[in-house]
């Protein structure tokens, strides 16, 4: 379990990281928490020539209030998501999802942005990102651009990120006061989950007035895009 040789680079700003990505070319990779990338390197499923470590970029961590939405820094760890008050108050679903990711060690190192960029069809953040209409804020040589989740996940371990781009923030609309639930199916606790459903609902006077639901599957051995049902809103009587 020894990775192939690589160059290790440590940028001091997002702009420098973007520059380094451009300079090192196609075979360079960002490393965030390393919780997905390091196993891939160790199994020699990938052999990037350079790793650009964005772990030291404090500008990428933390959750900010941005009016109608929250901005979640790409380097915010799952552990921080679990404990953040803004997330708890405005997008409860993300907290509930973070609670189910991996184990405490992994949650302390693995990042919100890294999970989304890795786009593992069995990853836990895909369904909630889709359900909540999250938007990816991306930095590249040409400046910043924003991509909605529904266009960000393009396939199996594949995103709309270009090789020279970095995810810096995730914009999530506020769902203040909404209820939420997340379910996933695992054969054993440490296994990749087979299917997951994320839901957030707004309830008024015993009726659901709005809902956001997304599911995703990962069928072993087959390439499957994340799938989700069209989101809908309307009124539904709550069964008590």
């Amino acid at each position: 379990m020894i990775p192939a040789e690589f160059k290790y680079l440590c940028p001091s700003s997002v702009d420098e990281a973007v520059r380094m990505l451009a300079e090192e070319g196609e075979d360079a990779k960002i490393i965030a928490g390393g919780q997905s990338l390091v196993p891939v390197l160790r199994m020699r499923l990938a052999a990037p020539t350079a790793l650009i470590d964005i772990g030291g970029l404090t500008e990428l961590t933390g959750v900010r209030d941005d009016g109608d939405s929250l901005l979640i820094g790409a380097m915010t760890t799952h552990y921080e998501v679990q404990r953040d008050h803004l997330i708890h108050d405005h997008v409860l679903l993300l907290k509930l999802v973070a609670d189910t990711v991996a184990d405490p060690q992994v949650r302390h190192r693995g990042t919100f942005g890294g999970s989304l960029c890795h786009a593992d069809p069995a990853g836990d953040l895909l369904a909630p990102a889709l359900a909540l209409d999250a938007v990816m804020v991306i930095a590249g040589p040409g400046g910043r651009r924003e991509v909605p989740a529904s266009e960000f996940f393009v396939g199996y371990f594949e995103t709309a990120l270009a090789a020279d781009e970095i995810l810096i923030d995730v914009r999530v609309p506020k769902y203040t006061g909404w209820g939420a639930h997340y379910e996933k199916l695992n054969r054993v606790a440490q296994a990749w989950s087979i299917v997951a459903v994320a839901a957030a609902v707004q309830v008024r006077d015993g009726s659901i007035v709005a809902a956001r639901v997304a599911s995703r599957t990962s069928v072993p051995g087959r390439c499957v895009r994340p799938r989700w049902r069209p989101r809908w809103s309307g009124s539904l009587r709550l069964l008590r």
């Binding site: 990338l37 196993p39 891939v40 199994m43 499923l45 990938a46 052999a47 890795h118 069995a122 199996y156 371990f157 054969r187 296994a191 990749w192 087979i194 990962s218 069928v219 072993p220 051995g221 087959r222 390439c223």
Partner: peptide, 16 residues
């Protein structure tokens, strides 16, 4: 059937 996970990533198609 393998349970799914890394075995389901063929060695070229994973991440490069």
């Amino acid at each position: 059937v393998a349970a799914g996970g890394l075995g389901s990533i063929d060695s070229q198609g994973g991440q490069s």
